[in-house]
Design a protein around this nucleic acid. Structure first.
Length: 501
RNA sequence: GCCCCGUUCGUCUAGGGGUCAGGACGCAUCCCUUUCACGGAUGAAACACGGGUUCGAUUCCCGUACGGGGUACCA
């Protein structure tokens, strides 16, 4: 039987990096086994629906390169893949479960239940309390159905029988045992006619022939209920295998990573930037921070999983080949932004110049620089080993695209002199005459010039650097000169003489 | 409170009854380079604690502590 897994996010806003990692592991697992990766939208909570969230999820998956084989927006034979479009289906199954004796109709209002919770310590709907509540178990099924006929609001609850053990054989955690007496009678169908996660998830996973459920650890406690649901429907023999992933923890402090942590710690926690109603509700993403999606994938893949060995850099193919559930850690993994930055740096370093030039084209355009593709590739080649993020190319390396904005006057004070001015004056004709105007020959010419006049490299080279870049940081002097070109170089030499002299 | 899960350098992790407990990020020093980075080298840095089991536990078992998750007509 071929592997079928699903990523099933809820469109309640931007999807954070933990969700992307869950999607990634599902994707890797599917690809590794030649199976199918499915996207299902779990929008059963109408009160939390956020417009644009579904599109965001799809765009985020595309950005990181996790394309579903099947699912909302991607088609397939098991649709619809949006749960709100499957509403009638869940109602049918909910009633069926009542008929099978594993669920019941309940009429207690949320307010009534809240009141009980307030007055009774640890109140919950379960086998102990359901006799004292308003439901079909107490009134009899006929009475309950009559009330429903006459329009009374109701929910369907799972009827959990006490006194037995429920075993979840988790692929990551091993055997986890729950006592049914500890479990509550979960709502399966809400008064608005929508299913809860628990019902929808079981019905859909069954109908969509899901073989493996790979999801966050926060679902482990309710998995016992899910097992009961499979039993109740008579689907135990095709129940998927469960795997519960460790959580991603905050960069500092306690608790799991949350949406607000990005703003809190000054780092992205979302794949894509999100524009909410207000500034407070808008977040930066890895995309507009200047991350390469491949770096994000590599970073996330290793946050909670490692195949063993010393390899750190994995492309998608290698991840797929190496991936397996039994190398997933059990403990939570802290979000380490420094490591994420390192991955990005490595990926920028090894990306080819043409590709990088394409990636920074938007930044070039934004600054209004009028440069050709070849020039950008040349600039990228000089800067790629000294940047961490894409925008660094035009921020740190701005002097490759426009004149020097600011000179390092501290160094200038130490190095500039009447002699230096004389040297510059004499150098200009040399530069003007240099042919071909390329890094290597130019360097030789300038070195010959220095030797001839008895100038020490330390008295000229740093000044040349400052003339071209304004700063003591940056690419090799003659590489910059070659890129900028003869005219520009001469102009910058003159500009520095004016500034310093 | 109750239920469930977890715990190897600061962080991500490898490992697994006998290892100098390995790698990576970060940090420090040095080399390369008359810049900055890249690269290279070196270094500091960990098995939460207490009991077992065993000739021998970081590794297996049980407790404790700590951390996390769940406990909604949210997912």
């Amino acid at each position: 039987m071929s592997v079928r897994v699903r990523f099933a996010p809820s469109p309640t806003g931007a999807l954070h990096i933990g969700g992307i990692r869950t999607a990634l592991y599902n994707y890797l697992f599917a690809r590794h086994h030649g199976g199918t990766f499915i996207l299902r939208i779990e929008d059963t909570d109408q009160t939390r629906y956020v417009p644009g969230a579904e599109a965001y999820i799809i765009n985020a998956l595309k950005w990181v390169g996790l394309l579903p084989d099947e699912g909302q927006e991607f088609g397939g034979n098991f649709g619809p893949y949006r749960q709100s479009d499957r509403k009638a289906l869940y109602q049918q199954y909910a009633h069926e479960l009542v008929q099978r004796g594993h669920a019941y109709y309940a009429f207690d209002t949320p307010e009534a239940l809240d009141a009980r919770r307030a007055s009774e310590e640890n109140f919950t709907c379960n086998f102990r309390t359901r006799e004292s509540l308003d439901n079909s178990l107490v009134s009899g099924i006929a009475t309950a159905e009559a009330r429903i006929q006459s329009g009374a609001p109701f929910v369907v609850r799972l009827k959990v029988m006490p006194g037995r053990e429920i075993i979840v054989d988790d692929l990551i955690r091993g055997r986890v045992v729950f006592q049914s007496s500890e479990l509550d009678d979960k709502v399966l169908l809400k008064a608005d006619g929508m299913p809860t996660y628990h019902l929808a998830n079981i019905v859909d996973d069954h109908l969509m022939e899901i073989t493996h459920v790979i999801r966050g650890e926060e679902w482990l406690p309710s998995t016992a209920h899910h097992v009961l649901l499979y039993e109740g429907f008579g689907w135990s023999d095709t129940m998927p295998r469960f795997s519960h992933l460790p959580l991603i923890l905050k960069p500092v402090g306690n608790g799991k990573l949350s949406k607000r942590d990005g703003a809190q710690f000054g780092m992205p926690v979302f794949p894509l930037a999100w524009k909410g109603e207000t500034a407070q509700d808008s977040f930066d993403g890895f995309d507009n921070t200047g991350f390469l999606p491949e770096a994000v994938v590599n970073f996330l893949a290793l946050l909670g999983w490692h195949p063993g060995g010393d390899q750190e850099i994995f492309n998608m193919e290698e991840l797929i080949a190496a991936f397996s559930l039994d190398h997933i850690s059990k403990g939570g993994a802290r979000f380490d932004y420094e490591k994420a930055k390192w991955f990005n740096q490595k990926y920028i370093q090894s990306a080819d110049n043409a590709h990088l030039a394409e990636l920074i084209a938007p930044y070039i355009a934004e600054k209004g620089y009028d440069v050709c593709k070849e020039y950008v590739e040349g600039a990228v080649a000089l800067m790629k080993e000294r940047v961490t993020f894409l925008p660094d190319f035009v921020e740190q390396g701005y002097y490759l695209f426009e004149g020097v904005r600011q000179y390092d006057d501290e160094t200038l004070q130490k190095k500039w002199s009447a002699q230096a001015a004389e040297n510059f004056t004499a150098l200009i004709p040399v530069v003007e005459a240099q042919e071909p105007f390329e890094a290597q020959p130019l360097e030789e010419a300038v070195k010959a010039f220095m030797q001839e006049r008895g100038i020490k490299p330390g008295d000229l080279l740093p000044l040349l650097r400052i003339a071209l870049a304004g700063t003591m940081k940056g690419p090799a002097v003659f590489d910059m000169a070659a890129l900028l070109g003869r005219e520009e170089m001469v102009q910058r030499l003159r500009a520095l003489m004016q500034h310093a002299g």
